[in-house]
Design a protein around this nucleic acid. Structure first.
Length: 840
RNA sequence: GGGCGGUUAGCUCAGUUGGUAGAGCACCGGCUUUACACGCCGGCUGCCACAGGUUCGAGUCCUGUACCGCCCACCA
């Protein structure tokens, strides 16, 4: 509702101290796609909590970010405008992209590229904002940020420089996980396993003195990169061979056989070849055993040309090695694999046929070809030394649901290296560094030139460091900018700092940080959640938030994750228009925290009906909107007691992020209220039993409605606001959360007997309705005589509800007997005896 | 290989200290009832995955098994 924005209902009151604030580290959705039903689902959960906290009196800090930093945006901007980012170019002020994308992409500078990104994503952001408003998210739209925006860049660079000065960020030339298509390093967190076909090749290595050893490998193309064989130290078969050498087939390279515990005697022949580098185990072995490097995979995934016979490529038969290798050079790994299999077969070193298998292979999650390991210079953030501290943070954080904690612990325990944050991409937040260029033209990486903090953000590809002139770029004696950009998570991990105004607005930051909650899905615990905890730990020595509210996924009817591609068959906006925002929110809020939930339009329809019912019941109650008496009737007090208990439990549950239970219980009591209580008191409220009874019913109805509306307000903000506007000033969303104390007070205490009276009356009403239904009579059929059998204890309790009961069920005579078991006998008036009553 | 969830009516799911199995949807039947036909009333539906154990009593606690899903792992 635009009115909400206009009235500032959701505006964050930044004058409040930290204790009066509830702050949310909202996930910034990726703007280069479209929102799908899964977003609607999880963002609704957060909004329910936000609305609850606001009604509890907190100033809710609820910003919205847009994630436009990263590969998806880069690709989209490239295609949309027909441009490519080239950091070596200078910034062009007032640059305009071609009206239509040209055939050959136009090269633009990084600052220009980022401008184009902002321009394109502005459109998406408008559409997203419209959807969120339609859904009713109570975001403060005065507070938005973009992950590639100036502020985010500044925070990213600043945080990096601080880590650098503390020695927590470092650069290293080392073997790194590498995507050969994107030609960039990637981090452990961005890996995924994919089942791939492969084949075990059994290959004979001649021993230097006599005999031979057979290994099995799925990557025979790496034989030229082989630097050793390895077996388990206790493996009796190979024990005698440790310390001796073998000769690699085809290439004639002498390599040692070494022991190491990681070698698995059960796998293959129990002895493996170590190559530089086939997988991460190779790296571990290579380090542990201090082996030399013979790297052959290039950045583009092809085997690089090698001159055999010198410089680390010594061979017993250099010309034979060269002849073999020349057939592999410049081939991709996959092509080289089949080629070398041929060569090995010809040379007789391949034993039998390759044995086809399927095995898990590591991929960059956005990549199309298996990862390679390539040696390159990269920036890292120290992680491994903080493993125990991070595990303690995982325990310190309040998880909803609690079992999600294990996901993070699992991940931390499985970490095998520091976090590589540099990417050899062009679009992103650049590293704010330059390097001196030495007289020989090489860069002095050991002495980076750092800009002063107040100058940030800088782009070293176009900006010039202090004390240098632009012409000195890449000249001996001059400077050279760091060419890389940061991993997208290196920026996203600072979302609390970016949204909260770290450095830029310390007053704000102190009021919102550490934040109260991070809502997010479980699939990015290892990335976003982990890295945010790490950055906060390193910078502030604290958790970034007290709570993590983890949402599940939406499953389509086949119980598969509803992916973006599949989920798009129903656009969120169409759902909202068809079922109403309250209806869709009802469905979303029915999903338990963390639980994967089925996409179910049936639930949305139920939600819509609940909203309409709320409207209609309110219409009845508000037919007489002023209280006209004291609440004295037992069933009225019974109802308020039930409501008080509901509010008490709901408050505790919402404090604990258990929104789905609250909705379910509120709904359940509301239907009881409509079907039984409302019916029971209807005639009394019309005045059939005199003004005192009418006044009691009227006051109870108004009290109940007020509490029910506020209870539902976080879930169904539209219908509750509509009803509220009929009789109360202001927005229900800034009204106070209902108080169970007030309800109990209105009921005259927690009235157990009155609850029992109400329940008994409802049960009797149900029995009479059942009889009428069984005999297929209209509900307005008069009952000549109803005989109730109640226990000794219940008898006096029901007495006070007699008149209400008789009125609603049209009972002419009601007699009550004592019995051990509850039962109701009904006798109807003779069918022909009361035509005039039927008509009446 | 390690870990985490799940398994309750045809479907989607509740079931909070152990105490006679629940809701909604769907289905069937009935009803214009002065808030609501975008409605109301009623009915049908269950070896609570399986096997043991603890207990007077287990959907609920313990042990194990099976299946489904997810996360993680040094897959030569």
């Amino acid at each position: 509702m635009e009115r909400w924005a206009a009235d500032g209902v959701y505006r964050f009151d930044r004058s409040r101290p930290r204790e009066g604030v509830y702050s949310i580290d909202t996930p910034p959705p990726t703007v280069s796609g479209s929102l799908h039903v899964g977003h609607v689902f999880s963002y609704t959960h957060t909004d329910v909590i936000a609305r609850f906290q606001r009604m509890r009196g907190k100033a809710v800090f609820y910003p919205m970010g847009w994630d436009d930093n990263g590969l998806p945006t880069e690709r989209r901007v490239q295609n949309y405008y027909g441009v490519r980012c080239d950091p070596s170019l200078a910034y062009v002020p007032d640059f305009q992209p071609p009206a239509k994308p040209e055939k050959h992409p136009l090269s633009v500078s990084r600052p220009n590229f980022i401008e184009l990104c902002a321009r394109l994503t502005a459109e998406d952001e408008k559409a997203f904002e419209a959807l969120w408003k339609y859904l009713g998210l109570s975001v403060d739209w005065g507070m938005t940020y973009a992950t590639i925006g100036r502020d985010a860049q500044k925070v990213s660079q600043l945080s990096f420089l601080r880590l650098l000065s503390k020695g927590l960020a470092y650069q290293l030339e080392a073997p790194t996980l590498w995507d050969v298509d994107f030609r960039t390093a990637v981090a452990q967190a961005e890996l995924e396993d994919r089942e791939q076909p492969g084949a075990y090749h059994r290959i004979r290595f001649q021993r230097a003195d006599q005999g031979s050893v057979e290994i099995e490998t799925t990557r025979p193309e790496l034989i030229p990169a082989c630097v050793a064989l390895v077996a388990h130290p206790d493996d009796e078969r190979y024990k005698p061979l440790f310390g001796t050498d073998v000769i690699t087939p085809l290439f004639g390279v002498r390599v040692p056989i070494r022991p190491h515990e990681l070698a698995d005697p059960e796998k293959g022949s129990g002895i493996a070849m170590i190559c530089t580098f086939g997988d991460v185990t190779d790296v571990v072995w290579w380090r542990a055993l201090s082996l030399p490097v013979r790297a052959i995979i290039q950045a583009n995934g092809a085997l690089r040309p090698v001159q055999w016979g010198n410089d680390g490529w010594e061979s017993r038969e250099p010309s034979r090695a060269q002849q073999a290798y020349d057939q592999l050079a410049n081939l991709s790994a996959a092509k080289a694999r089949s080629k070398i299999a041929e060569l090995l077969r010809e040379s007789g070193d391949l034993i039998g046929d390759p044995r086809p298998i399927t095995h898990a292979v590591k991929f960059y999650e956005k990549g199309d070809r298996p990862l390679e390991i390539v040696t390159s210079r990269q920036w890292f953030i120290k992680t491994m030394t903080f493993r125990d501290a991070l595990l303690a943070r995982a325990k310190e954080l309040c998880w909803h649901p609690p079992y999600m904690q294990a996901r993070l612990e699992n991940w931390i325990n499985g970490l095998n290296g520091d976090w590589c944050i540099s990417r050899q991409r062009f679009f992103g937040v650049p590293f704010p560094l330059w390097y001196p260029v030495l007289p020989d033209g090489s860069r002095d990486y050991a002495h980076p030139i750092v800009p002063p903090e107040e100058r940030l953000p800088v782009d070293p590809s176009t900006d010039v460091p202090e004390g240098y002139r632009a012409e000195q770029r890449d000249q001996p004696g001059g400077f050279s900018g760091d060419p890389d950009v940061m991993d997208t998570w290196a920026t996203s991990s600072l979302s609390p700092q970016i949204a909260g105004g770290w450095i830029a607005d310390e007053d704000l930051f102190a009021r919102v940080f550490p934040m109260d909650v991070r809502p997010q899905a479980h699939d990015i615990i290892r990335t976003w959640l982990f890295s945010t905890v790490l950055r906060s730990h390193l910078e502030f020595d604290t958790l970034p938030w007290k709570h993590a509210a983890i949402s599940g996924w939406i499953l389509d009817p086949d119980r598969k994750k509803m992916s973006k591609s599949k989920g798009n068959v129903v656009t969120p906006m169409a759902l909202l228009e068809e079922h109403g925002s309250d209806g869709v929110r009802y469905w979303a809020a029915s999903g338990r925290p963390g639980a994967d939930t089925a996409f179910d339009v049936g639930q949305m329809k139920v939600g819509r009906r609940l909203a309409i019912k709320l409207l209609n019941a309110s219409k009845f109650v508000l037919a007489s909107p002023e209280p006209r008496g004291e609440i004295v009737e037992p069933i009225d007090r019974g109802l308020l007691t039930l409501l008080g208990r509901l509010v008490r439990d709901a408050t505790a549950d919402l404090e604990d992020y258990n929104y789905s239970r609250v909705l379910e219980r509120a709904e359940s009591l509301f239907w009881f209220f409509c079907d039984n209580y409302l019916e029971l008191v209807k005639s009394r409220r019309y005045g059939d039993q005199g003004p005192a009874g009418a006044g009691s019913a009227n006051a109870a109805l108004l009290t109940a409605l007020s509490s029910l509306l506020r209870l539902f307000a976080p879930f169904l903000p539209f219908v509750t606001e509509e009803v509220w506007s009929w009789w109360r000033p202001g927005s229900i969303h800034t009204a106070a959360w209902p108080s169970f104390d007030e309800l109990f007070e209105a009921a005259g205490g927690e009235r157990e007997d009155d609850v029992r009276t109400l329940e008994l009356a409802a049960n009797v009403l149900g029995e009479i309705r059942k009889k009428k239904s069984e005999e297929q009579r209209p509900m307005k059929t008069p009952v000549e005589l109803a005989v109730l059998r109640l226990t000794e204890r219940d008898r006096p309790l029901l007495d006070s509800a007699r008149a209400d009961l008789c009125a609603v069920a049209l009972v002419r005579e009601l007699s009550i007997e004592t019995s051990d078991t509850f039962s109701v006998d009904v006798r109807f008036a003779a069918p022909d005896s009361s035509p005039q009553e039927r008509g009446a």
